[in-house]
Design a protein around this nucleic acid. Structure first.
Lengths: 344, 344
DNA sequence: TGTTAGCACTCTCGCTCGTTGAGTGCTAAT
DNA sequence: ATTAGCACTCAACGAGCGAGAGTGCTAACA
């Protein structure tokens, strides 16, 4: 019982069909689709072998077969085709990014929508991470006595705001001065660089209240960098309504609840940002909550440096060819657009 | 066949039960709950009357009865109780707002979550509307050649950003100067006041490129004020998974799709902002897409002026007493907190 | 006159059970 | 090695049936 090519070809036909229909695939179906023509009996023999090899699973005796998780792995690594995205669609993607103007949150949100529309799967996208981009401007604006808002604008045109407490005796002018000064000092620097030591030197220079700097420091290092779920955009969860595997309400609920915990998703995507495109199938996922799903992610880059990530989460049965190609394309388009924004 | 009190009392029992169970209510159930004790036969007679009056509907002969839309109207206007919210819960709400610190988007989002948690219904909340608050600061930040980002901070600590095109020859210093100047000029003014004519005078004073001002004007009047769906927060849609009326996937899909069109929701809530608390049941709604749902909204105010709105969208069967009380309470708490932010 | 017990009737819901059909594994022939 | 043929399995579907909840009506009663 060898790993011969025919077995793999048959496996591909089975998986292709299963991806499309979400139904167990029978020998007759394969026989009809398979080239060269083989009788269903022959296919049956091969399928029995594939089952013994752990690549197929029979839900019950008289059903067809369903690909096992390991089969999807082989499919992704060796079997699936390419050119799943038509030239027209490629042009569409390019146009989408050429036409786009707007702020970062919007761009990333639209990107998630685009991925979802293209793949018919829920899509996830991570906004450019602050500590991976550079500061463009920092502005502290008083709100009420005792509180001020820190607004940070990054080189990727991202705006992030947070509220900090400030001592009562700090005047608007002081906050303004600090804003100007910090902007001048740190503009163009990586946000990760705005660290305690440097703030120290600033403090010395301006002889300011150290509590205020402590607050600003905390604001930048914690509030702006700790994952709070607001950095991750989710679009297209309604796709799941059309998935046959979630036709039961409890199943659907289970699947959709995956997207509720934004902090968890954000952590996941922040991790994904560190790798090139990757496909994680079923319990290959470290996280238990993804154990019967597949996660496909790709980073996007500004001048070659990964600053964010996009991805798709869906059932193990998904059109891997289409999804991986889509993510690749979109990632590179997005990277280009974003690199335009940022003068190196 | 009069509108006598007993009929109304029976109606109340029926609706209370129906709100709780979403099941047709039979005469025996009512008989058991009704005070004074009456036989189910008597109740049956009354229920037959109520049906004839158009207040009850029988799904089929051998089922109990379901309140008609008009019955819910009467229920809301005359029958439902109060004190649906326990003192403990009230304290919880107050604490929630006392503890809160953060920016506006966050506060409104949390508010929506709170409403949803309290009512077990999907909740909707509208961020303070720009044209109803005053400007705190306007900052134009260049992003790339030909584009700049306008950041507006309002008196309600809201930050709104948008990207505008600027002529290539405008320098950073000019943008900075304009920012400072416009902030000085318009800070404290209603954002609706930043209109063409005033921009005209500013333009004269600084002899600036009129195209740039046109762009800024457009940015403020259009991009920042036109409903784009980003002003409305939706939380708790997953509540619907537990509603018996949406136990069929198609029903659920239909209901949840209500929340997909954010622009539509934003328009709805912007309209709601103009009224005091109101309960709109079924096809009392102007909008067809709400015709078999109920919408309950309440505005929230800063120093007596409505600037935003909160609301609940759910099936006609909903705990109106609890929802209206919750919205009232939260609206007044939120109004208080927000008024604190804004020095009159 | 309002209330209630009793009863026949209706209709949904859930259950069982036989039928159907897709799919299998095995065997024997090619 | 391939395939036709066949007996076998099992989920899915639908019909048929009984149970139960609920009704309306009637007649008796306070």
């Amino acid at each position: 019982m060898s790993y011969d090519q025919r077995k793999l070809d048959i496996l591909k036909v089975i998986i292709d069909d299963y991806i499309e229909t979400a139904q167990p695939v029978g020998s007759r179906t394969v026989s009809r689709k398979f080239e060269p023509m083989l009788s269903s009996a022959t296919i049956r023999n091969e399928m029995a072998d594939l089952e013994e090899m752990g690549l197929l699973v029979q839900p019950h005796t008289s059903a067809g077969r369903v690909p096992a998780q390991s089969a999807f792995r082989i499919y992704v690594d060796q079997l699936m085709g390419d050119n799943a995205i038509t030239p027209d669609e490629k042009v569409g993607i390019t146009n989408f990014y050429m036409r786009h103007i707007g702020d970062m949150e919007n761009l990333i949100k639209s990107t998630a929508s685009l991925i979802s529309a293209l793949t018919n799967q829920p899509a996830v996208a991570l906004v450019p991470q602050l500590r991976r981009t550079t500061l463009k401007r920092l502005q502290i604006i008083p709100i009420i006595k005792g509180a001020a808002m820190v607004i940070i604008v990054t080189s990727t045109a991202r705006v992030k705001q947070t509220v900090i407490r400030v001592p009562d005796n700090v005047t608007d002018d002081v906050l303004n001065a600090i804003s100007t000064m910090m902007t001048a000092r740190f503009a163009g620097h990586s946000i990760a660089d705005i660290d305690v030591s440097r703030i120290g030197s600033v403090e010395d220079a301006y002889l300011m209240d150290s509590k205020l700097f402590a607050a600003i420091e905390e604001c930048i290092l914690d509030a702006l960098v700790l994952p709070d779920g607001s950095d991750v955009m989710v679009e297209g969860t309604t796709c799941a309504f059309n998935f046959p595997e979630y036709s039961e309400i409890e199943m659907l609920k289970g699947f959709l609840s995956t997207f509720d915990n934004r902090v968890r998703l954000q952590r996941l995507m922040t991790e994904a940002l560190r790798h090139e495109q990757c496909v994680v199938i079923g319990d290959e996922n470290q996280d238990e909550w993804l154990n019967d799903l597949s996660l496909i992610t790709a980073p996007y880059k500004v001048h070659g440096r990964s600053v964010g990530a996009i991805g798709v989460i869906g059932p193990m049965r998904m059109d891997y060819a289409r999804v991986t190609e889509s993510l690749d394309l979109i990632s590179s388009n997005l990277s280009n657009v974003m690199s335009l924004y940022v003068n190196e």
